[in-house]
Amino acid sequence: MLEIEPERASTRGVFADALPELALRHNVLVVDTDTGSIKPAPGMDYLNVGIAENAAVGLAAGAEHCGRRALVCTFAAFSVSRAFEFIKLDIAYPRRRVCIVGTHGGASGGWLGPTHHATEDLALMNALPHMRVVVPADARQAVSLLGQCLEYDGPTYLRLGRKDSPVFAGLPEPELGVPQEVRPGRDIALVATGPEILATALEVARRLAGAGHSVQVINVHTVDPESAGAVGRAVAAECRWLVTLEEAWTSGGMGAQVAAALGARGIRWLPIGVDGFLPPGTHDSLLEASGLTPEAVLHQVLSFVTHP
């Protein structure tokens, strides 16, 4: 059974530690937007273009056109919203081998407020053909999935948090596009993405099991439409209630992709995610305000399964 370790670790932090070696191994041009997340190392091709996300995306696309893999590091809110047209036309349309790394994903920007919260990113990136959208479950998965994104023959978006988040003991090695059943069950499927949300799903499943429910938990680290079919196949054949959990707006996000893939099975669906814009606050307080704590999710799921 998957367990939450006492130590926490930042997906952004391990990305910064792992990037120099991976960039050298895969001959990657690293383009930074003055994020402060990158630690340039000797021999690593690194450019800091400043707070110029559009230029960073265009530069990376041009480098890939000339034969170089490239990675762009930005705040998620700025890459996805500010540079969306450039990502759409310069990277997704020609299927450039560019990895866009968005830090401060979801509500992890906290006190920085709505300008730095990125709750729209999953929906926007999912709208782009060819784009793989990746949300690691913890720091260990972040390193593995970063390496896989740099090997992938096409564009990728890697969403990372800001500060320390849960780390899971016993979590299998991830494979891009392949969901992970981390708790078997039959009646209720909790499909979760991201560290805090997976931790919540596991706690809710434990409490539901105590009330006599058979609960499946699936970790979805690749949340794009291409991966949704695999999630649908992973959901138990006996499942009666589908609950999707994400630190994002639910319109167009992970849950919408999974529900679309499962539509023909007629399973009732409860999407749980961020509802609207969030004020400045701590990450924990914003998750609470969004109904993404174990207590709030448990209440919503019990109401869902007991009221047809």
Rank of each mutant, 00 (worst) to 15 (best):
G113F: 15
I91S: 01
L242Q: 04
V305S: 01
L286N: 08
V305N: 00
T193C: 14
I218T: 03
A259K: 02
D138P: 09
R186I: 01
A77L: 07
A296I: 12
T282Q: 10
V134G: 02
V98L: 09
A205S: 11
F15T: 05
G113T: 14
R207G: 03
C149E: 01
V178A: 09
V231I: 09
P308S: 14
K39W: 10
L24M: 14
V274Q: 01
G43A: 09
G58A: 07
Q257H: 06
S81K: 14
L242A: 06
R162D: 00
A63H: 06
W111S: 10
A18K: 13
C99W: 00
C66E: 13
F15H: 04
R132W: 02
R25E: 15
V204C: 01
L158F: 09
D32P: 07
L112Q: 07
G109Q: 10
S37Y: 15
L287A: 03
A264T: 12
P225V: 12
L112W: 03
A261E: 04
E85N: 13
D90K: 00
G273C: 12
V28G: 03
V134H: 03
E151G: 08
A77T: 15
E3R: 15
A230R: 11
P136R: 01
A248S: 15
R265N: 05
G255N: 05
I38P: 02
G109H: 10
I218G: 00
T222Y: 00
D275N: 13
S285Q: 11
V274P: 00
W111T: 12
L286H: 05
Q216E: 13
L145G: 05
P136W: 14
L287S: 01
L262P: 00
L71H: 05
A52I: 11
L262R: 06
V204W: 00
V72C: 06
L89N: 15
A60Y: 07
T103G: 03
N219R: 02
V31F: 06
G210Y: 12
V243W: 02
R265I: 13
L24F: 09
G102E: 01
G229Y: 08
P136H: 07
P174K: 05
P225N: 10
L171R: 04
T115D: 05
Q180A: 15
W111Q: 12
G194S: 09
E246G: 06
V49Q: 02
T293H: 00
N126V: 07
Q216R: 03
V217I: 15
F15W: 10
G36W: 11
L150E: 03
A92V: 09
H221C: 13
P129L: 13
P114Q: 06
P129T: 14
A83E: 10
S290D: 04
A127D: 00
S227I: 01
A137V: 01
Q148R: 13
A127H: 03
F168Y: 14
C66F: 14
A236G: 08
I38N: 10
H104L: 14
